[in-house]
Design a protein around this nucleic acid. Structure first.
Lengths: 209, 209
DNA sequence: CAACAACTATTCCACGTGGAGTAATCAGGT
DNA sequence: ACCTGATTACTCCACGTGGAATAGTTGTTG
């Protein structure tokens, strides 16, 4: 059972699959792809085998046997254990309840954007808006497809979440572009020296993880 | 110069600092902390030294010398090179223009939330809303502090971005809670068999990275 | 003025990830 | 009947990260 070490995203996805049915790793891979879950979790064949191996080491899943078909490499089938069910539930609850800073790159990029001239920044942001709109269109089509199939809504609420977030990002960037265009947000002054240490200590408060 | 390998976030942050002034790694660490940049980039002392070492290997920075004070361990000061300036600009442009899927855990969590009973989910989401509101308050205070100091706005646009995203997430969760509360979004039916492979091939379109 | 905590400044190791590599088998065309 | 390319099913290695460990030095409190 080792010294814990938190369930990785792919670990959660694997456990969730095995909670439905026993499987061998490659079948998990196929299912994840067929369900387009690779839009939510990073799935790489190599990583998947490692992930399942780790689950086994921690006693969250166990091998039920290894059969082989023809001369193919043998496939090991796994099933979830009681401890596995418990770990999955616990991890899901934590993921839902506690927001964690995952350090997305875009905020960092705009925070450092002042290193570049305004003209360049506006061009790049226009490109981004185009790409984001394409993503949004894709999600809208996905929603149409899934409603058309009559699939129960609780299985795709994540699509509506991602749409909402995307729309907000697009709107925010459009606002910024507007302000840059009208010169309302000045850009071209040089950096004021080096906003250094030693001035304001300030409260070091609230940041999770 | 090696086989490229993309500039990591901490690499970007380090380069950006050295673009202002030559420094030794620990000074970078202090500056990043003093400016609260650890809210945008993951900063860990150990990782920072590795990051700077890699920058040096790639010729993006170079050591200007190693002085020591008293009996302290000696400090190596670095400065950015021409190649470093170029790499920084290129990376910043890519980060601004191209959205990439970074697989945040919350969408994954809500996509798997149907493994848990509705009662539990609502409780957890209420907790999350509380935490998100605390984060939002923090950002609002940060904005007040920084406007009060008269710091030029282009240095803190990321704060307004993060506020917008946070507000959207909170609003979306509140909407979901509403629907769960009124029973408008049904939850307690069992999973329909196993939405398996073999049905719809469908276009495998648009997903970046 | 002694003890102890916090800071300064860095090194080291274990772990997870991603990408490439391997090797067989099956499907489809010519 | 043969070649090509996709699919099945995994293994392996290099890299980046996080956390702990180290060790001297300055500041604080009783």
């Amino acid at each position: 059972m080792a010294k814990s070490a938190e369930l990785t995203p792919l670990g959660v996805a694997s456990l969730a699959l095995l909670a439905e049915q026993p499987m061998h790793p490659y079948e998990m891979y196929q299912l994840l792809m067929a369900r387009h879950e690779d839009r939510l979790v990073k799935v790489r064949p190599g990583t998947l085998y490692h992930a399942v191996g780790r689950l086994e080491e921690h006693g969250l899943v166990e091998a039920t046997g290894t059969e082989r078909e023809g001369n193919r490499p043998e496939r090991t089938t796994y099933r979830i254990t009681e401890a596995g069910h418990a770990a999955l539930d616990a991890r899901l609850q934590a993921m839902l309840a506690a927001p964690v800073n995952e350090y997305p790159v875009f905020p960092h990029a705009i925070a450092e954007a002042h290193h570049l001239p305004a003209k360049v920044v506006t061009g790049l942001l226009e490109d981004r808006v185009v790409a984001l709109n394409a993503d949004l269109d894709f999600l809208i089509h996905a929603q149409e497809a899934v409603t058309a199939k009559g699939l129960d809504r609780k299985y795709w609420i994540d699509i509506t979440y991602q749409q909402a977030m995307l729309r907000t990002e697009i709107a925010w960037i459009r606002g910024l572009l507007e302000e840059l265009g009208t010169g309302q947000l000045p850009w071209d002054e040089p950096r004021p020296a080096l906003t250094g240490l030693s001035n304001k200590p300030k409260e070091s408060l609230g940041k999770h993880s």
